[in-house]
């Protein structure tokens, strides 16, 4: 699974962090950092994270 976040869209809401904390985090200054090739076992979490992104900035490329 390949995860891409459009960082031009992302506004660091952090909703994805609540859904998939192993894949998405906010750093000390509140900006998003993420893993672009998470384990397939996390797919449901990542789908949920993409759903709840207020800017719809997360895409999953299979």
């Amino acid at each position: 699974m390949k995860v891409v976040v459009d960082m031009n869209k992302c506004q660091d809401h952090g909703q994805c962090v609540f859904s998939a904390p192993e894949v998405f985090q906010l750093d000390d200054s509140g900006h998003l950092v993420y893993t672009s090739d998470p384990d397939e076992a996390l797919r449901d979490q990542v789908e949920d994270a993409a759903d709840v992104c207020p800017l719809q900035a997360i895409t999953i490329e299979d």
């Binding site: 952090g14 609540f18 906010l26 509140g30 900006h31």
Partner: peptide
């Protein structure tokens, strides 16, 4: 406010 306040809210969530 900004990111600091947002992080505070997230901790209480």
């Amino acid at each position: 406010g900004g990111p600091k306040a947002m992080a505070g809210a997230a901790r209480h969530r």
